[in-house]
């Protein structure tokens, strides 16, 4: 099949970008979307042009690297699918495709389709963990965990941190991302001791990074390649509310420094 591609090109963080149009010829329906772009890039390189930069690594929908808007949809039209898992058989011959980077203040474009998502890392670093050191942990079976709770935690933990939720949200909110961490650790007894502090810190960091507020549009859930449920946002809101009432919010780092 043949396609017309309109692709966002931007040299670096500082220069303004623009859409460029390319023809993709001899596209096989068995190709993944990224393989279609690979072929375009090979052609561009041979002509002495710079290839279209995009993030990718595992190409099996698990690392969360790939990230692009295809016709205005995060990761394209297929439900519960990352761009790398999207195959060209889902498109029609002759179609026109608009390919753009995630758009959000907290995800500045670095080049072409590549954005800086380190704001996500900083949110996790602010408190998205269980604060245990290596060693000295009790036997794995010391604390039984109800299977339902473990399954629920696993549903949330399936988040791949790609940022599609932010890209799909008109407010560029990362609440679904945070709620996935809340739902993961907050539903396990191991995460209980820091449950409230974790929520508060991650939400504070979220706001400091310039992500927007959640206004319950649920576009995030629809775009999420791992189908993380907005039900976890409700859990987050409950915990956050409780956390704002809690008095003791002493910091682990200040404790250990003292």
């Amino acid at each position: 099949m043949q396609l017309t591609l309109h692709v966002w090109r931007q040299k670096d963080r500082n220069e303004p970008g623009r859409m460029e149009t390319y023809r993709a010829e001899n596209v096989s329906p068995d190709m993944s979307f990224l393989e279609m772009l690979d072929e375009l890039n090979e052609k561009l390189i041979k002509e002495g042009h710079e290839p279209v930069a995009f993030d990718h690594d595992c190409r099996e929908g698990i690392c969360g690297s790939c990230s692009m808007m295809i016709n205005g949809m995060a990761h394209g039209p297929e439900r519960a699918t990352t761009t790398c898992q999207l195959h060209m058989r889902k498109f029609q011959d002759g179609e026109e495709l608009y390919i753009e980077p995630w758009r959000a203040k907290a995800f500045p474009v670095i080049r072409d389709l590549v954005v800086d998502r380190t704001s996500f890392d900083r949110i996790i670093a602010s408190g998205g963990y269980v604060g245990v050191n290596t060693g000295g942990t009790p036997d794995g079976n010391m604390l039984p965990v109800p299977k339902e709770k473990q399954e629920l935690a696993m549903d949330a933990a399936a988040c791949i941190g790609c940022g599609a939720c932010v890209a799909a949200c008109k407010n560029a909110s990362a609440m679904l991302f945070i709620s996935a961490k809340v739902g993961h650790l907050g539903n396990l007894p191991q995460g209980e001791p820091e449950r409230l502090k974790r929520v508060r810190k991650m939400v504070d960091q979220h706001d400091a990074e310039g992500f927007g507020h959640c206004t319950n549009q649920y576009e995030c859930e629809a775009a999420c390649p791992k189908e993380i449920s907005v039900g976890f946002i409700a859990q987050l809101n409950r915990d956050y509310w409780q956390a704002s009432l809690a008095v003791n919010t002493r910091d682990e780092s200040s404790v250990s420094a003292g």
Binding site: V132, G135, G140, L188
Partner: peptide, 15 residues
């Protein structure tokens, strides 16, 4: 020890 460590970190192993 690895399993103990991972459980303590909140790795949601099947149960």
């Amino acid at each position: 020890n690895i399993i103990d460590q991972c459980v303590a970190q909140g790795v949601p192993f099947a149960r």
